[in-house]
Design a protein around this nucleic acid. Structure first.
Lengths: 146, 146
DNA sequence: TTGAGATTTTGAATCATTCTAAACGGCTAA
DNA sequence: TTAGCCGTTTAGAATGATTCAAAATCTCAA
């Protein structure tokens, strides 16, 4: 069963929404709760089905809307891989993604600040970066189920 | 007008196809020629329209097939950006991509080997990488039209 | 030159995502 | 308390890139 947001999580949500002039709604709280509850980079459809258990009438379009809103106010990151469905990730620390080809799972990889700094240095002087995305693709050896 | 493949380019193509047991066809030669002629990371549709000028009967599905084949035998890289159409790139040297949000254009950014090495080091020991993708998103300052 | 197997073609099918229009909800001012 | 404004949600249709299916065509080794 999905836990409710704790005080701090609820605050982040309310603050982020308020900051960009948007309202708090039950749908948004539930979608955000679902994202925090299981940090496995779910697709829209996965979020939708998980959220349905708490709010049976919820519509898919609303899940799209909520997630778009969260991305817009910086609460959540989009993770795209090739042409697969977009996945969503509430981890705001700078990190890369590793996609395991054998399981399809996506893992967060912590990204040292030095590497980010170095990366921005390889750009020509007049290129201004807003976001950097780094994604690895491969396999995990051995029986590690992580 | 689109130039023909030079001797070396034709050889790479034939060799790569042969190596993965596939045939040389006029369609494949033309699609590859189009990719080399203008290295602006075209979409399938762009490749299709450029190729039509040389081979009027060509079908869109064939362009999809050819590009998929080239990616499969390592002649060409796919470039995905968010949910936009997939783009294709015949630059085989390791490089990152910078997408200019104001123009939609994609630029190749040379990628120093040290950075690649460092990147693979941040992975847990049992993660085996096959490919790494790095993409920047931002804007180019000033009136540089590059 | 021939035949097996790969490739191309056309058009239909798929599927994630976006759009549209109507209903809803919450807040503010009277 | 009510009226109305405006952002949000909803259902379903529309979009658009990509894939699939089946038949026709082509390529190349023998």
């Amino acid at each position: 069963m999905i836990q409710n947001l704790n005080k701090h999580e609820r605050e982040s949500l309310h603050e982020a929404l308020a900051k960009s002039g948007q309202k708090i709604t039950p749908q948004r709280e539930i979608v955000y709760t679902v994202l925090l509850a299981q940090r496995d980079h779910p697709t829209v459809d996965e979020v939708y089905h998980r959220a349905l258990e708490t709010m049976p009438g919820l519509s898919l379009a609303t899940v799209y809307n909520c997630l778009e809103t969260f991305v817009g106010c910086g609460l959540v990151r989009q993770v795209n891989h090739e042409r697969e469905s977009t996945r969503y990730c509430p981890n705001l620390a700078p990190h890369a993604h590793f996609r395991d080809e054998s399981t399809g799972r996506v893992h967060d990889i912590e990204l040292p600040k030095e590497i980010l700094d170095q990366l921005t240095k390889i750009l020509p002087a007049n290129f201004e970066t807003e976001t950097i995305e780094i994604s690895f693709q491969g396999r995990t050896k051995t029986s590690n189920k992580n």
